[in-house]
């Protein structure tokens, strides 16, 4: 499931220290709830992205735990305060332990 490249949008690429940056991200994933049955009546096993983390220059600014009630192809939008320049790394963790990682960057002056 971890093959799709996440899509990331930052509302600013360059900011002054203390500015608020908005991050939007979309990733392709079935987010199988574990509550549906197949044609034979067998429960389709749960398979979701259960954890999301965003770090800026290596420091965590926001994270989320997802339950099966989060829609397929999860969308996440949040904000952080610009403190220092560096990579903005978004990581999603699948139930199977695999990771989806996307990266952008920010320049803070």
């Amino acid at each position: 499931m971890a093959e799709a490249k996440p899509r990331i949008k930052l509302d600013k690429k360059e900011a002054k220290k203390g500015d608020i940056i908005e991050v939007k991200a979309l990733v392709s994933h079935i987010m199988e709830t574990g509550q549906r049955k197949d044609r034979e009546g067998k429960v389709i096993p749960r398979k979701i992205l259960n954890k999301f983390t965003c770090t800026v220059n290596g420091k965590e600014v926001f994270s989320a735990d997802f339950e099966p009630a989060v829609s397929a192809n999860p969308y996440i939008q949040f904000k952080f305060k610009a403190e220092e320049s560096g990579p903005v790394v978004l990581t999603w963790i699948d139930d199977d332990g695999s990771k989806i990682v996307g990266e952008d960057s920010i320049k803070v002056s």
Binding site: E60, F62, A64, V70, F78, K79, K81, E83
Partner: peptide
Amino acid sequence: GVATFHFGPSTGIAEANTRIR
């Protein structure tokens, strides 16, 4: 359960948006 969001001082503004079932 739907989701839990974790914030801190570096989040700047405590706001999150996602889509739910």
